[in-house]
Nucleic acid binder design. Structure first.
Lengths: 197, 197
DNA sequence: TAATTAATAGGTCAAATGTCCTAATGCGTC
DNA sequence: GACGCATTAGGACATTTGACCTATTAATTA
């Protein structure tokens, strides 16, 4: 079926455009042009803009779940968390240009009081729940969710400032500090009070 | 002159609306309605939307400068930084609903590739420079700017997650953790590796 | 091959938006 | 009181947007 292929192309293009320009700033025509289809064809697949948004959010959730599942197969819990921190380095240039795809969408939908806001938060929760699980496996018990939120918080803060200042060194420095923080949490005895500063 | 009064009312209303709904999502009509003036009158004061944006950014910079100057008179450097952290608690409910006014504007303008983005970043820099100055006064020397960025980073991360999850306890917990971090930086000997977690 | 469904193209529509203009009104000065 | 400038009102306009419709083509099935 050509159906699925076109549909996926639309969702993929919308995903990119929503990330790079924002949800509101992206129009039907923009997406249709990116996929090189007519607006009519577009309407055949998605009746409303909210429908595309839902599809994009679903795709993002699925993509992240798949990524984390891959890490789960190959890495130990501690290394999985380190890999999470490394995303900041890996996606450096995109983050410096467009910020964090998860955070910026959640923020935008929050301001628009958009009904899909809870769905967008689910993308956050994919990471939150996964991180909590890693900390639990590492024996952090009841602190695990707090630690997960702390890591998420740092990622969001780093992404926001990185996008504002376009400062590579800042990202690297804070990623290293995050790693130091992680070690101090998992191995309190060896912790240094000044990890990298 | 009535001129200035109307102008200030417009900028003030635009400031609020840009914060609560975002820049793009706020229309001329929205602002005019909020001030209860006609669009024609509006156009007399501001010819383009970008002109209003500039005025709003200038106002935000001025407001923050004034706030920080006040703190400078009454508080010691250390307490000034603590007061900065307290903003998160003081503005809790607004932050949980609309995020950080500084970060969300900078992010939005960044995505729109808006020419005023550097101006919006100046609001960030008001805090960054001020925080750096406090750390310098506290004898942190060359680390001062990094420490300032670290505090900004945490504020942004907390605001983003607070807006997503609307979690008061999270804000309080992370604000306390930030305070602990501050103490560990200013007074390394007494530092505990697990401030609050 | 004929019939039916899936998919695409392109045009239309009302509403909203940023921008601009002109006419009217207030208001201080001579 | 009359003049001139500052301010305000409200409408006009082109463009864009999300949404919708119908006609046409491609694909599948009978």
């Amino acid at each position: 079926m050509k159906n699925r292929k076109t549909r996926e192309a639309i969702v993929s293009a919308a995903d990119t455009l929503f990330y790079e320009r924002g949800f509101e700033a992206t129009s039907f025509a923009d997406i249709a042009a990116a996929v090189e289809i007519s607006r009519g064809n577009f309407y055949y697949h998605f009746k409303t803009k909210d429908e595309i948004l839902s599809a994009v959010i679903a795709k993002r959730i699925e993509d992240r779940r798949a990524m984390l599942a891959k890490w789960g197969e190959a890495l130990a819990p501690r290394d999985r968390i380190l890999r999470f921190i490394e995303i900041l380095i890996t996606n450096q240039s995109k983050i410096m240009t467009f910020g964090c795809p998860v955070g910026t969408l959640a923020t935008e939908l929050s301001k628009l009081a958009h009904p899909a806001q809870p769905d967008a938060n689910q993308i956050f929760s994919v990471f939150r729940d996964w991180l909590r699980l890693q900390f639990e496996e590492l024996g952090c018990g009841g602190r695990s969710d707090d630690l997960a939120m702390h890591l998420l918080m740092r990622s969001q803060g780093i992404a926001t400032l990185a996008a504002a200042y376009k400062d590579e060194a800042f990202i690297r420095r804070e990623a290293a500090d995050m790693t130091g923080w992680l070690q101090s949490q998992l191995d309190p005895s060896k912790a240094s009070p000044r990890p990298s500063h």
